[in-house]
Design a protein around this nucleic acid. Structure first.
Lengths: 212, 212
DNA sequence: CCCGTTTCTCAACACCGTGTTGACTCGTTC
DNA sequence: GAACGAGTCAACACGGTGTTGAGAAACGGG
């Protein structure tokens, strides 16, 4: 098993496998910033990393496997950020929810190309779809619990199940994020989107509807 | 130019071009009910319609062109239904919005396989993406106008631009619809989804948020 | 009834992308 | 220095898209 942090000064005639793997990942990220996943072939990734196509398959089982590796990183980052954000000072519900939404948004905005590729690959790859579902579910459940807590302390009125509300509101965030990043079709301006999302969340959680 | 409604009783040795075209469309719809668009090849469509692959290309430029033809129908149907729905009796805001959301939802539910294919093809085909954007925009604008009208008559409080709210709420509906139809990942139960959506819409439009 | 025109059909082809095979190279290790 | 494992790639098999060019089938007009 080769050392993970191979000494960079050593002059080997052949770069180590780790370097190659990293080169593939870096190439993928670079190309994704230029064009959508569907317009990137395995050959592009291999050439970008300075290897041939069959050699690519020595390192990754497919193009999607590369994406999945990159996504795992982002998901780990998102998890860490979300945990940080949950250590919120008790500055009132508005700021609490704003922090939550901002954290979510900013984490993915820092990797927008990857996020868009994620959405693209979701329709064709079950593993990638499952990862998305897992992240979605975790976030939605966290929010559902927070809504229930607010209801328990009398700060939020009763209504539909907190879980259902959280799932719908999270769907909204996700789709709004995608529309904002991709620029395809109607979207809320990037500078305003968190504010408007927050307003919808707050009104949904704390507001009431007319009974006619 | 051949007659559109060709006499069905005539016994020609070769079916008319119109028949072929319809056979391709019918095959597409049938196969989409079984498997996703990506798992259907041009050859599948051709064989299903009883012709060879090159002959398929005499009728349609691509697989996506077939989808687009089918979608045009659904969009026309959705437009008609939406117009009908806007002739609402003045039964109060709750029932008005419920009718709007239900109409939207039911129209696409009647063609769920097509709707899912639409979402799938959106990421790879610009024309299909544009069609989606157009439908989305039309619906969102109609809702934005309705929100402005409610605000003008003092029934709804001020807040973020009606257009932004409408875009976000429509995003939510769309994503919720997709999740419900596809069954992938967390979703609100199909029997409840319109009710919960409606509640989010009403609270967002008529409710207010805490100021902390 | 024949003949030109249009409509329609498809075998064969060119192309591109994926993933596999099997032989080969090159350090490492004993 | 032999044996081993890691790494490499030309060549292949396959499956998908879209095109070409040669022709068959109906149609319509003289």
């Amino acid at each position: 098993m080769p050392e993970s942090d191979s000494p960079r000064g050593r002059r080997t005639s052949r770069p180590s496998g780790d370097d190659r793997e990293l080169a593939i990942l870096a190439t993928a990220e670079r190309l994704l910033a230029e064009r959508p996943l569907g317009a990137i072939s395995v050959d592009d990734l291999a050439r970008g990393a300075g290897i041939s196509r069959p050699t690519f398959y020595f390192y990754f089982a497919s193009k999607d496997a590369v994406l999945l590796t990159l996504l795992d990183r982002v998901v780990a980052e998102a998890d860490a950020a979300t945990l940080d954000a949950s250590l919120l000072p008790g500055a009132g519900p508005r700021e609490g929810w704003r922090l939550a939404i901002t954290t979510y948004f900013e984490t993915f905005r820092a990797h927008r190309a990857l996020t868009l590729a994620w959405a693209e690959a979701r329709s064709t790859n079950a593993e990638i779809r499952d990862l998305w579902a897992r992240v979605f579910d975790q976030w939605a459940q966290r929010c559902a619990d927070a809504i229930d807590a607010e209801r328990a302390r009398g700060a939020a009125p009763p209504g539909p199940s907190a879980r259902d509300l959280a799932v719908l509101l999270t769907s909204m965030n996700e789709r709004a994020m995608y529309a904002t990043f991709s620029g395809d079709g109607p979207a809320v301006a990037e500078s305003a989107v968190v504010d408007v999302l927050l307003e919808v969340w707050l009104r949904t959680i704390y507001g009431t509807a007319p009974t006619d």
